[in-house]
């Protein structure tokens, strides 16, 4: 039998210690997700790219970064095309459900001035809930059928809630819950992943090229892009929620749009809204 020398034993011990140290070493800095650091870098990019645009203006999308479009928009806003939706939304908001309860009973502060806190991470489900998801949950819990989360009455109700939050900065919370952080990261992954036959990501259009033309459109900056939702879009000829906008984006890249309540869209909205923390709500809005 071969007996290891003291020198061999020392070498073996050294290898064991090294292996243990490597196994317990923290992950590399770039592997860690720190939403707040990422938000600051995200916002700093846009503030540097558009030094003349006030922080409060980013919610106005292309109208904040293109002067000629801004002039047209100001004229359009003399008779905002979402006024009919607001009227419809207020009527629906005030109408009691069959059980006598109302939408206001489902929300903090009776639903007034809370839109800037959506989407929210819900610990009970471990998933992100959008404003439209919360409205539909309210309906279902009160014995009503859910609405189409993309347009129609849902957009009108979301418009009412946005209107009551105008001027309030986005205040999205990522609670100390690994599932919430995972949802944020999935949203981030969606935002930066190239998709569709055209092979473009959300970032491909709404980060560096923001403010530039793509055919007839001025690309909106990603910062504040959710602050104007829901929107009346001339291209649609009707109102649409944030989910409708994301679904349209998917289609434009020639990616098959996901289901309206797909977790990926909700997580993307969570990420985008968190990136816009501090940017005031300006919705309901209009877009070309």
């Amino acid at each position: 039998m071969i007996t290891p020398s003291p020198r061999d034993r020392f070498a073996l011990a050294r290898y064991v210690v090294c292996a243990l140290l490597l196994a317990t070493a923290p992950a590399k800095a770039e592997d860690k997700i720190d939403p707040e650091t990422e938000r600051k870098a995200f916002q700093a990019f846009f503030f540097a790219k558009f030094p003349k645009v006030a922080k409060e203006e980013f919610g106005n999308g292309p109208y904040a970064v293109n002067e000629s479009m801004r002039k047209q928009w100001k004229e359009m806003m003399e008779f905002p095309p979402y006024e009919f939706a607001l009227d419809e939304g207020h009527a629906e908001w005030d109408k009691p459900f069959a059980n006598g309860r109302r939408y206001a009973d489902c929300f903090d502060n009776k639903g007034q001035g809370v839109r800037q806190t959506y989407p929210r991470f819900i610990a009970a489900t471990g998933q992100v809930e959008t404003l439209e998801g919360a409205i539909n949950r309210c309906r279902v819990e009160n014995g009503e059928k859910p609405l189409d989360p993309m347009t129609g009455l849902m957009a009108s109700l979301a418009a009412v809630m946005s209107e009551s939050s105008q001027g309030k900065p986005f205040a999205i919370v990522i609670p100390d819950d690994p599932r919430a952080l995972a949802a944020y990261e999935r949203g981030e992954e969606f935002f930066y992943s190239r998709k569709g036959q055209l092979g473009v990501s959300c970032a491909s259009c709404h980060m560096s090229p923001a403010g530039e033309r793509m055919r007839g459109d001025i690309l909106a900056p990603a910062l504040g892009i959710m602050a104007a939702m829901p929107i009346y879009r001339s291209d649609w000829g009707s109102m649409g929620t944030s989910i409708r906008r994301l679904s349209t984006c998917s289609f434009m890249t020639r990616a098959q749009p996901l289901k309206a309540d797909d977790e990926d869209y909700r997580d993307l909205e969570y990420f985008l809204s968190y990136m816009s923390n501090g940017i005031p709500i300006v919705g309901p809005g209009t877009r070309p």
Partner: peptide
């Protein structure tokens, strides 16, 4: 494309 993007999206993140 989806498989390739599972890792490469990180290279596009603004930090």
């Amino acid at each position: 494309q989806a498989n390739e993007q599972k890792t490469s999206w990180r290279n596009a993140v603004f930090r």
